[in-house]
């Protein structure tokens, strides 16, 4: 049974996780992921009738690829993050469900992320996430995150995390 305490605990985790991203503490953020974690952003499209699913997603990262993205921006030569984007992650509509596994919960949430670049360039990213959070010792870790962006044409290249 999902108790009030459990839901509050998960929400607190998600809010603190978002703060790490907005403060650009990317290695601390990556430490919240389990070693076998998956980070997936499916392709969103409008399809009609009898057609197959999209051939590949926008992102399907393991922890090593997430690290590669962070390392790229740490080279000091990653122009897409020079100067760094300002981001504000607003996380809402959190629903916690139990899973078959006693140490894991499934969490859905909605988000609005505003990305501000340079003087007046910006992007608004809106969508929903499906997470699997795993209890490891005293804390939660993310073992799977699926990010469904509500857009079929992205407003700019993705250089931030959701």
């Amino acid at each position: 049974m999902v108790t009030f305490e459990l839901r509050a605990d998960v929400e607190d985790f998600l809010n603190r996780e978002a703060r790490l991203l907005d403060e650009h503490r990317f290695e601390d953020w990556l430490n919240l992921f389990t070693d076998d974690a998956e980070y997936i952003v499916p392709l969103r499209e409008h399809v009609q009738g009898d057609v197959g699913p999209a051939g590949h997603p926008i992102i399907r990262d393991n922890k090593m690829m997430l690290l590669a993205r962070i390392k790229k921006d740490q080279t000091g030569l990653s122009h897409v993050e020079i100067p760094s984007s300002m981001t504000c992650h607003l996380i809402s509509n959190v629903i916690v469900d139990e899973t078959q596994s006693s140490n894991e919960v499934q969490v859905s949430s909605s988000f609005i992320v505003r990305q501000a670049r340079k003087l007046r360039d910006e992007a608004w990213w809106v969508g929903r996430r499906q997470d699997i959070l795993r209890r490891v010792g005293d804390s939660w870790m993310i073992s799977r995150r699926e990010v469904n962006l509500d857009m079929t044409v992205l407003p700019r290249g993705i250089s931030i995390f959701f």
């Binding site: 990653s78 360039d121 290249g157």
Partner: peptide, 24 residues
Amino acid sequence: VQRVYQGQHMAGLIAPDDVENFER
């Protein structure tokens, strides 16, 4: 396929830097 979307792709390690140049 994996190498396509991790490289010259809107969420890859290459194309977003091109977009940034055009913006500037």
